[in-house]
């Protein structure tokens, strides 16, 4: 299993645990004194689960198991893969922190953080699609 896949899969498991932990907190009765920041994390829960867990799990397995391009460059440009991983995770973590902050303190001028998060995640996914596309092919049978 390549190193990038290990990072994707282990990160995915951490996000799954974090998402379900957050869902537990969100399920607590409203009478309990939970910080408003946590109460505003419903969208963060969905995206921790669907981007952090589901999508990253898929990305890791695709990078590992899809047909190789060639013996010389089996999985394409590895640097593009790492850039995708870092951009996606940076963007997701930025969203998880910035979105509830913006919800609970709308007067704070931090809306641009969400723009940054959107851009980072979009770039991460775009790079991954670019990396995976040539590997959607028949089995490699030599040059």
């Amino acid at each position: 299993m390549p190193k990038l896949t290990r990072w994707y899969l282990k990160s995915a498991l951490v996000y799954l645990a974090a998402a379900l932990l957050l869902s537990l907190a969100l399920a607590l009765p409203p009478s309990l004194p939970l910080p408003a920041f946590i109460r505003a994390m419903n969208p963060a829960f969905f995206h921790l689960f669907l981007v952090g867990w589901v999508t990253q799990m898929i990305f890791g397995v695709i990078y590992w198991m899809f047909p190789i391009i060639s013996r010389a460059r089996p999985r394409g440009n590895e640097k593009v893969g790492w850039a995708s991983y870092l951009l996606l995770n940076g963007g997701l973590l930025l969203r998880v922190a910035a979105e509830p902050f913006l919800t609970t303190r709308p007067q704070a001028n931090v809306g641009w953080l969400l723009v940054g998060s959107a851009l980072l995640q979009w770039l991460g996914v775009t790079l991954f699609v670019y990396l995976a596309w040539p590997r959607v092919k028949e089995k490699y049978r030599g040059e």
Binding site: R95, A98, E99, L102, V110, G111, W112, L113, L114, V115, S117, A118, L119, Q121, W122, V125, T126
Partner: peptide, 13 residues
């Protein structure tokens, strides 16, 4: 993800 990115950005700005 392109639509999602636009939605998230719109939420901020």
């Amino acid at each position: 993800i392109t639509i999602g990115g636009l939605l998230l950005a719109h939420k901020g700005v």
